[in-house]
Design a protein around this nucleic acid. Structure first.
Lengths: 141, 141
DNA sequence: TTGAATGCAAACGATTTGCACCCAA
DNA sequence: TTGGGTGCAAATCGTTTGCATTCAA
């Protein structure tokens, strides 16, 4: 499906900033991007898009279900394409490396613990904070 | 152990603001408090303590191991007394209710997933985000 | 006495918002 | 044409920091 069509299906006008942000996520090898990341990457590739617009577009994409927002214990939010399949994250607190994983048993036990305590669980990923054991950490923050 | 003594053991001078903040956590029925919460509760009980001091004291207590800091997906950090035993949290995104739990199997599987992917895990609690199923949510935010 | 701790106000970094201008439908 | 979208700058919000003053040891 074309990107303009993806946006229309999400109920959003196919404007230039939206197309650029969407294709950035679809082409970037980094799955998790902050607003600043997106803003800087767009500037670098010669686009003239304001930071406020980036924030607005990211929020709209989140509401439309195109992106998922995470916080990862840092001050700034990161976004990733919503590929529909639920998964959790392991995040290195030193370098920011993120790996995804899924464990059926963890999901089931989470759900049970929540239900027993009067909660209805969200389809919200767990974040496990850790340190890379590789020396040195393979990414810089 | 007396509170002044607890502070000294933690390597901190027993100043009035520190004593007040510590005893607030030890006497509050709410385990999880933000800096603003602490600040307002101190003001209410007639103490004259600056917000900046509250932030400094909370950070020092965290570094000294007296408190643990969490983010709980909201914009502001909350702190709880460090009672030494590791536990995870289930947080209602509507009302902020927090319940603690511990599941051996979840811990083991987390650790395994992390190790397999080149991470050394932190003793950092998981946060499970959910909605209260009780009507209405029993706490207000 | 004296360096550490505080209070206040200014500074900060991430994010949001008001408003005049612009563009996709 | 026209209402939503955008850029810019100013405003927010939580948190931190500089500095002169105060206090615990």
């Amino acid at each position: 499906m074309s990107e303009p069509q993806e946006l229309k299906n999400a109920g959003l006008k196919a404007t230039l900033p939206r197309l650029k942000v969407l294709s950035l996520f679809e082409s970037s090898e980094q799955r998790h991007l902050s607003a600043e990341d997106v803003y800087r990457m767009l500037l670098t590739s010669g686009e003239d898009i304001g930071l406020a617009t980036v924030y607005r577009v990211l929020t709209q994409f989140e509401q439309a279900g195109l992106l998922v927002r995470h916080h990862f214990e840092s001050d700034k939010a990161v976004f990733e394409l919503n590929h529909g399949t639920h998964h959790d994250h392991i995040v290195c607190l030193q370098c920011g490396r993120v790996e995804e994983f899924y464990d059926e048993e963890i999901e089931a036990r989470q759900k049970k613990a929540a239900t027993e305590r009067g909660f209805s669980i969200h389809d919200h990923s767990l974040h496990i904070y850790a340190d890379c054991t590789k020396q040195p950490c393979p990414y810089k923050d």
